[in-house]
């Protein structure tokens, strides 16, 4: 981008450049399946969807706990289930050598998944 396109800048330009580079690198790290990496490309896509659903379930569960509608026993079971789900997710990420960043997706007006 040429400098004459900058109409107003109130911070160090390097900060913006750094952030824009991060955006570009996340755009290029989208699922890029080829015959050689079809497994990991597909795993990334599937795990991203699972993580999205897990996060939604977790948010809903937090609302219920904070709403006070659950018994102590139900809270206990819920905590254990969520904990196991998170542990299983970590295990899968390790198997497919994926990081939280790899599974991050931008949900448009809702912001990022992670």
């Amino acid at each position: 981008m040429s400098e004459d396109k900058i109409l107003l800048n109130s911070g160090p330009i390097d900060d913006f450049v750094g952030e824009i580079e991060k955006l570009e690198s996340s755009a290029t790290s989208r699922v890029n399946a080829t015959p050689d990496n079809a497994d990991s490309g597909l795993a990334k896509l599937v795990l991203t969807l699972i993580e999205l659903i897990r996060k939604l379930v977790e948010k809903q569960a937090m609302r219920r706990v904070e709403g006070g509608s659950l018994t102590d026993d139900e809270i206990e079971k819920l905590g254990e289930t969520l904990m196991k789900l998170e542990a299983k997710m970590e295990e899968l990420k390790e198997i497919f050598k994926l990081t939280d960043e790899d599974l991050n997706i931008n949900l448009g007006p809702l912001g990022n998944l992670m």
């Binding site: 396109k5 900058i6 109409l7 109130s10 330009i13």
Partner: peptide
């Protein structure tokens, strides 16, 4: 506390 970058 915010930095603005306007281009165009």
């Amino acid at each position: 506390d915010l930095n603005f970058l306007l281009t165009g």
